[in-house]
């Protein structure tokens, strides 16, 4: 942690940045920290409770953070994909943010827990992680911890794939009927940066705002399709959902389809174009009659 704190202090002292966004120990567990003074840098920590994707705070949609000035942000390898996404989609300029990568041994889903990683509490994305050492980083800190335990439980995406369309429909109806349309999934998402979301437009009302099955499906499917090839898989939407809807399953499925069709996996290199913004002559098009 010393290296992280020293680096943050230096960045603030020499005025490279005016705020370092990292993690601190709050009164009830780990939480995002906004360090603006060099002498506060020793508050910064990193451990398996640091589940939050701090790249979300770089989004220009957060006007109360834009006014803080130039930022440095602490990212895990997975979070770095969101920084790359924001750069790729021209929301931020790469040179406007100092990326502090931390080597990661996996995180738990619970910032208020004891931070001991187990098969039961390890975040699902850690099982398939190949970026424990972030590549998109101006500074890299910490030793590489041991690999996290493999999460327990069935592969739900495979289970859903094995269902008949009717069974799958029934599964999602049941899960999505609990949606209360708070849109917390959108608000915490690093890649949901639209100034005005289609769900908030009322003339015409593309998506009804009521929490009934028709509108819930319409909202969640719209969001998922807008996330195709863009979702970084950080799981913040699942963590924020007040109804515990397994949004991760459908996002994972869409990511797999994008990979299969376009050979694209969400990249932590901002110069790699995403399928949604590119056209290639050899794109598969057998579905066009």
């Amino acid at each position: 942690m010393k290296a992280l704190q020293e680096l943050a202090r230096k960045l603030l002292e020499d005025k490279t940045v005016s705020v370092v966004i990292g993690y601190e120990e709050g009164p009830h567990g780990v939480r995002p920290a906004f360090i603006t003074k060099p002498d506060q840098a020793d508050r910064l920590i990193f451990d398996p409770r640091c589940v939050h994707n701090l790249a979300t705070f770089l989004s220009p949609r957060r006007s109360h953070l834009v006014t803080l000035g130039k930022k440095a942000v602490v990212v895990k390898g997975c979070d770095a994909r969101a920084v790359a996404g924001l750069v790729r989609e021209t929301q931020i300029k790469r040179e406007d943010v100092v990326v502090i990568g931390v080597r990661c041994g996996g995180v738990t889903g619970d910032p208020m827990g004891d931070g001991k990683l187990t098969e039961k509490n390890v975040a699902p994305r850690c099982a398939v992680c190949d970026v424990r050492e972030p590549k998109l980083a101006d500074h890299l800190v910490g030793e590489l911890p041991p690999a996290p335990p493999t999460p327990k439980g069935p592969d739900m995406v495979a289970k859903l794939d094995a269902m008949t369309p009717e069974e799958r429909w029934a599964f999602w109806q049941k899960e999505l009927e609990r949606c209360v349309r708070c849109h917390a999934c959108r608000e915490v998402c690093p890649m949901c940066f639209c100034e005005r979301c289609i769900a908030d437009k009322s003339m015409p009302q593309w998506i009804e705002s009521s929490a009934h099955p028709r509108a819930n499906l319409s909202w969640q499917m719209t969001r998922v399709l807008h996330m195709a090839g863009r979702c970084v898989g950080c799981g913040e939407c699942v963590r924020a959902c007040p109804a515990n809807i397994p949004l991760g399953l459908i996002l994972k499925k869409v990511a797999a389809v994008v990979e299969e069709r376009y050979g694209y996996r969400v990249s932590d290199d901002p110069s790699v174009p995403a399928p949604i913004g590119t056209y290639r002559l050899d794109d598969k098009q057998e579905f066009i009659l």
Partner: peptide, 23 residues
């Protein structure tokens, strides 16, 4: 509220928050 996402989960969970929209 630097760390606040504006997601409203606090209000969704809250037993006393009672604001509504009419559509």
């Amino acid at each position: 509220a630097l760390r606040c996402h504006g997601c409203g989960t606090c209000a969704t969970m809250c037993p006393t928050c009672h604001c509504f929209d009419i559509v």
